[in-house]
């Protein structure tokens, strides 16, 4: 149980939070247009009618971000490794990886989704799939592989060079040193930022609605258009929060654990 000072701190925190919440509620609630806004955005009736459809469409988002993440994790690692190659003969690989990362990190996601999602199928090439879901998946994988590769790279670079040197001194090749010594340590260190990017990916599945994939956001828009009420969008927002908030807390906890381990583990 909380003791003296801790309990006092908790009381103060609760009190100040309640005061701020009350102030915000009063300010918003007392604005002249609040009743209309409330009806347009937070209508309980529309919430309960939109929930089943919006939630069902969310399974598309789940499929999208799970399949995408399973592809992003290995592809991102390969790109990170390609960028860390020093052999002169493999320079083209390194250059390609660098351009890839610069491009997909530098261009707004929505533009990439437009170009790949509408442009490539429009080429009408034989054997190139036309389904929006496929192109939605491809664009998310490309964009997030670029981000994730940078996370991996930072992780690999955070492992002190003495570790690789020790491995090489034992007669391991560079690849073996990376595989058995550097990457396992780097991976542990980057789990929190990887989860962070995973949360970003989950939210960005809503972007592919522009390709006509009827995922949760698109479904909410359809319902909104039919009812002239924004509440279905709020329903979608709620569903996203239900998924992302626990994951955010998990990231916080892992990061804190990592910090403690590092503080405790140094000699």
């Amino acid at each position: 149980m909380a003791t003296g000072p801790a309990r006092k701190g908790l009381l103060v925190a609760t009190f100040s939070t309640l005061v701020v919440a009350a102030l915000v509620a009063y300010t918003v609630g007392s604005s002249p247009a609040w009743p209309e806004v409330q009806k347009a955005f937070f209508d309980g009736r529309y919430f309960s009618t939109s929930l089943p459809a919006v939630a069902e469409a969310f399974t598309i988002n789940i499929r999208l971000f799970i399949i995408a993440e399973l592809l992003i994790l290995p592809i991102g690692l390969l790109i990170a490794l390609a960028r860390s190659i020093t052999a002169p003969a493999l320079a083209p690989l390194r250059i390609f990886a660098t351009i890839f990362v610069d491009f997909f990190r530098g261009v707004p996601s929505i533009l990439i989704i437009y170009v790949l999602g509408f442009g490539v199928p429009a080429l009408q090439l034989d054997g190139v799939p036309k389904e929006p879901f496929f192109w939605a998946l491809v664009t998310l994988v490309l964009i997030y592989s670029a981000y994730v590769s940078e996370v991996y790279r930072a992780g690999i670079e955070s492992i002190h060079p003495s570790q690789e040197r020790a491995a090489r001194a034992l007669g391991l090749t560079r690849i073996q040193a990376l595989r058995y010594v550097v990457i396992p340590q780097a991976f542990r260190r980057v789990i929190p930022p990887l989860l962070n990017d995973f949360i970003g990916l989950q939210k960005d599945t809503a972007l592919v609605s522009i390709l006509g994939v009827v995922e949760t956001f698109k479904q909410a828009q359809i319902l909104k258009a039919a009812s002239f009420n924004f509440t279905p969008l709020m329903t979608t927002a709620l569903i996203f929060l239900i998924i992302t908030i626990p994951m955010t807390r998990l990231v916080d906890r892992l990061a804190a654990k990592d910090r403690n381990a590092q503080l405790g583990g140094t000699r």
Binding site: A166, L170, L172, T173, Q185
Partner: peptide, 24 residues
Amino acid sequence: FQGFNLFPHLTVLENVALAPRVAL
């Protein structure tokens, strides 16, 4: 080395067995 440079993610046994297994 002066600074040991053991592999912190591996047990003592795995540290010693790594090179025989992987390099040899």
